[in-house]
Amino acid sequence: MTGRIAFALCWILVLAFLALPILIVAALSFSSASYLTFPPPGFGVRWYRAYLGSSEWLASTWLSFAVAACVVVLATILGTLASLGLARLPRAMQAAFGALILSPLIVPGIVVAIGIYYVFARYRLVGTPVGLVLAHTCLAVPFVVTSVSASLAGLDRRLEQAALSLGATPWGTFRQVTLPLIRPSVFVGALFAFITSFDELIVALFLSGSGAITLPRRMWDDLRFAIDPTIAAVSTLTIVLAAALLGGAHILRQQQIGRQIGTTDG
């Protein structure tokens, strides 16, 4: 019995350790004090107002959204097409292409960042949103490919064969059968691509230059000078955004599972 209580205490403490720092940041963002202190002497939205009143913060937010949106489009299209191809390739070629496409998941961020910086600097892509989009797409694509490939692996190939036998062209089969069945996982991949780009810092540290300062990059710059609660407000907003997207991804995943159960029925 005591063992059981000790065990429960143990994992609950770890959960608190996981959640508390984030909750405290959220709480501090509503502080009325002009410096970081806990518990806050009072509550208010002055730091949100400070954020919304700062053209620099807003410009960075806008840039991050714009970059992430472009990354979503590029990564989702390239990643979905590649997943469709990968699923039809022999195992050896799958492994070779897979290694290239998925490697950004394991290659240390700093190595990727300086590698890209090394070449992009030569082509004047540093300090431009285009450079960020090009680089972030490489980091975001693996999430699209893993998500879409997983749902393609669960897709019954006979559905596509059935469509072909019923007279649908390969393109018609893709549009009317394959795509509707994998659509939720394409959206999941797109959401992860968005978050990946939106939160990305290491590449931005090298590529932002002075002309394309993303939101994480501005937070980083500010953190070096002062830890003021504006960052807490921005952080809280990004947490809420991530939570909303994650919730959306979860719902879409349930849909995907629902569709695949539908296909294997009977």
């Binding site: 019954d156 006979r158 064969q161 072909l164 036998s165 007279g167 390969p170 069945l181 296909t263």
Partner: peptide, 20 residues
């Protein structure tokens, strides 16, 4: 001739009905 030009009916083992 690709399958979609052959105009052949086919019934699959698991029926392969489009779930959507």
């Amino acid at each position: 001739l690709p399958p979609y030009r052959r105009n052949i009916g086919m019934v699959f083992q698991n029926y392969a009905l489009f779930p959507h």
